[in-house]
Design a protein around this nucleic acid. Structure first.
Lengths: 197, 197, 197, 197
DNA sequence: GATGAATGAGGATTCATTCAT
DNA sequence: GATGAATGAATCCTCATTCAT
């Protein structure tokens, strides 16, 4: 087998794998974790049922991996995009903006995460791995504490409070409350007031 | 039918209905919304499969009603228990304490609510009814605004921010962070800082 | 128990029995033999489920008896109403008119009979009893043969041919063909031509 | 996919589909439309329960399709076999013979058709499609009228009268009357007399 | 490796019948 | 006798997974 062939196959392999993951997320966001049979994933992704099981040993594993992958992507798209030339408070607001914007842009991803977060389908191992991905968030919070910008409290607490408030904001429209630019800024202020020193 | 008979029947009726609801909640909290077949609800509640359908026309309705009932109960057990002789800030902290305590005491209920909140099984009607039950919360927030204790922001926003933070606190142990009395008080302060004027 | 009491009870008994039979027929005609649960018969007749089983040992028996009863009623309402002062041919046409009119007036009855006629729910015994009820028809046909008005053929054949054609006429609208007075008379002529000498 | 593969698959596909249809017809004729669970169809056809649903989306659709298919087959086996070198009256008698013979040879098919004809399981669409299949009968009748052989009456009426009489003849044995060759010929004459000019 | 038809255990729901009151 | 809640076997259908091709 030539290196070109290997390469092409990897591309294809990744391609199929990604198509499966994409289809799964779309369907789960649309129809729910349990109204998404593998047969639909197959149809929607254009990958045959058998081939899906070549990439993922079971539906459970597929969903766990999807969940982790998306977790990673949110972290990258938010903490990974921070402008280090800004001061801490500005970075804090930038983080809120990035996170809020990400979920507004990809509402499916929030839907997926929320459904998975409370599902017994997600394994302990996955939850542990998820915590690892959140290290980058922990470091950001820690820096804030060290700089005297944030309350000197438990890291996990601060992260949870922060994330939960952003999600609450993103979901406001789902309880009938549209989010204007002004409302968003006010919410961001609440977040800051919640954890700032 | 004598009044005694009526009474006995109502007791029985309520009894069975309640046993079904209780069993359903326990099983959903334990195994998840979709790993809870009606046959298990039947076994666990001691009510035959057919009889469940005398009380609830379908699994969907059963779960929707259960969700609403529990929503109502949380509201009663929290906002309903506030001590009106206290000043606003004290009531605010009492509310946090009551809500936190309720979910710590009945972790199943939080599990149920979180699973339902993101499930397509919950109907639009149920969500509307849920909003109604939350009127009492809205009034509490409104009072805080009028008294100048809370930020003069959108009601739905303040409620969502508040509730999401309490839930985040209750779930801290599930991300490996035990909650001490001190941590709890600090979290409550964050909540207050988040929304207070 | 006084005779008056007995009498009253019989009236009631018959009344309930009849209400059950009526409800059953209406529901079967409306929803079909197998979309008619006993619970609906109970609701529609106003007779409790338990009481129905006091009058009929099973759904099967109920339907068999209903079928026989209605068979008897058609025979009474048709052959039983013939005007003996008319000549044979006139009586023949009167019979067609009566039978056609009966089923047009009570379409539920035809629906019931057709559903039952081809159902394994109807027992051999019921079918035999049905043949007995048709003796009156056999006699009418026989008279026609003796008078040289009808073909001298097998009785069962003539009866079947006749009855099947009337039913075919009654059901014409169900295949999209309305029945005018003229069409009806033409159909009657066909019947006559079919079996007349 | 090679052409041989395609061919083999089609054979198999048709084979399984046909086995399901065959089993369904046999069971319905034997036990009735509503005493024929899909599990029995599965056992009797040798096709797994799930696989049946690959071929037919529901029991209802299965039965509707079976009904239509059989309707089509009767039409083919009767009107499709007429000898056009014969004169009209001879063809008429040939048609009676073919139809009678078909149902005597396949009594299950008559049982199926009669059960379906009066069942709410059969959809409006199926009934419309059935009417289409009967066009060939309508043409045959029309030709008879044009040639002055049949009464100049409504097409639907003549068809219904004719078909109902043949069915009545086929079912004579079920009311205890065996059909001899002579009786059959006499019945055919009745049919002819019924509609001939 | 890829396909997608096939499997069959498991799920929600119905309903004839019973029986405690 | 009357009631109607309760029973639970039976039904239709789904879907994760496998495997012959």
């Amino acid at each position: 087998m030539t290196s070109a062939q290997t390469n092409r196959m990897n591309i294809r392999y990744t391609d199929k794998r990604q198509r499966i993951l994409d289809a799964t997320m779309e369907l789960i966001a649309e129809n729910g974790l349990h109204n998404t049979p593998m047969s639909q994933v197959s149809k929607h992704s254009g990958v045959s049922a058998g081939a899906i099981y070549h990439h993922f040993p079971s539906k459970e594993v597929l969903i766990n991996q999807l969940y982790l992958l998306e977790k990673q992507r949110v972290m990258d798209a938010t903490f990974g995009e921070l402008d280090n030339t800004l001061d801490y408070r500005q970075q804090f607001y930038q983080l809120l903006e990035l996170t809020y914007g990400y979920f507004i842009r990809y509402p499916q991803k929030l839907s997926l995460m929320e459904q998975c977060a409370n599902s017994p389908l997600i394994s302990e191992d996955t939850l542990k791995a998820k915590l690892n991905y959140e290290q980058i968030a922990a470091q950001f919070i820690l820096r804030g504490i060290e700089q005297g910008q944030l309350k000197d409290l438990n890291l996990a607490l601060l992260m949870s409070l922060l994330f939960s408030q952003i999600v609450a904001l993103v979901k406001l429209p789902s309880v009938g409350q549209p989010v204007t630019e002004q409302l968003k800024q006010q919410a961001f202020d609440c977040c800051w007031d919640s954890v700032s020193a």
